[in-house]
């Protein structure tokens, strides 16, 4: 019995060591396989989650007017719920029309995707999972954007899913340019902190993006538009990124550092475009 347990522990230890030392392509295949196989269940949960949220909103919206008679309250509540549902549909319709319009106007080859989940299993990284993968022409390292601006780049791509590293993640780096003064720099995600920027809304605790290595001799002003420079080779040039919020010298005092507010609403991502090569 004791020997059996020892063998088992040894087998598990070996399994963990093998897992930790798997060659990158094999590890990627295992991850992609898991992502693809779990996709149908994840889809079901996504839809159920959205419906539950919509129902909750409808119920909470119908809680007012306690003074009125019960029947009347019920009727008002149901009418409100119906209106709210219509309002939600109208909003979604408008958002989709805007995206469609953007897609028509854009000269880039774009693949429209829906965001399925956020933060992976643990929330260490600022990532979202999309419902498209290599089967739709996606691959690693492609720019992801909304009609408003840059969102991030694709990271791990399976046949039917793609993970996107958002520009708010501290490991994200984007070569950018301030349009008015034609100054380049590297945009990094700010990560999260206990006291974050309330303007970043649902990303409560998110720090603004930081643009480093900007030349000292250029005069930046709040509101200056920032776009991708195309120098890094990952993102095409000219994609809108955000606006300058604050500028200061960095710790070395050799360069300027600017705080950037993202143009895209990263807190409420639902539909995004992947820029195809």
């Amino acid at each position: 019995m004791v020997r059996g347990r020892t063998y088992l522990i040894l087998a598990v230890l070996v399994a963990v060591v093998v897992l930790l030392n798997l060659p990158a392509p094999v590890a990627r295949r295992v991850e992609a396989g898991a992502a693809d196989n779990l996709l149908p269940f994840q889809n079901v949960l996504t839809v159920l989650g959205r419906r539950a949220r919509a129902a909750l909103r409808a119920v909470s919206g119908g809680a007012g007017g306690r003074e009125r008679e019960a029947a009347l309250r019920l009727e008002v509540a149901s009418l409100r719920a119906a209106l709210r549902a219509l309002d939600g549909l109208e909003h979604e319709n408008a958002a989709l029309r805007r995206l469609l319009d953007f897609r028509k106007r854009s000269e880039l080859r774009l693949a429209a995707c829906e965001v399925m989940s956020r933060g992976g299993t643990d929330g260490w990284w600022e990532v979202v999972r999309l419902d498209r993968g290599t089967a739709d022409g996606l691959k690693e390292g492609l720019a992801v954007m909304t009609a408003d601006g840059l969102v991030g780049r694709t990271r791990a791509v399976s046949r039917h899913t793609a993970d996107v590293l958002l520009i708010t993640d501290p490991s994200s780096q984007v070569a950018c340019r301030v349009v008015r003064v034609d100054a380049v720099g590297i945009l990094r995600g700010g990560g999260v902190s206990a006291g974050g920027d309330p303007r970043l809304d649902m990303l409560a605790g998110a720090r603004p993006l930081g643009m480093d290595y900007i030349r000292k001799d250029v005069q930046l002003a709040p509101g200056d538009r920032v776009v991708t420079s195309g120098l890094g080779g990952v993102f095409p040039a000219g994609l809108p990124v955000g606006r300058v919020e604050r500028v200061a010298l960095d710790a070395s005092r050799l360069f300027q550092r600017a705080e950037i507010t993202p143009a895209a609403d990263l807190a409420r991502l639902r539909y995004v475009f992947v820029v195809l090569p």
Partner: peptide
């Protein structure tokens, strides 16, 4: 652990 890592950007294992 494999499931956890497969669904997040963490390296497998």
């Amino acid at each position: 652990g494999i499931l956890h890592d497969a669904l997040s950007p963490a390296p497998l294992g």
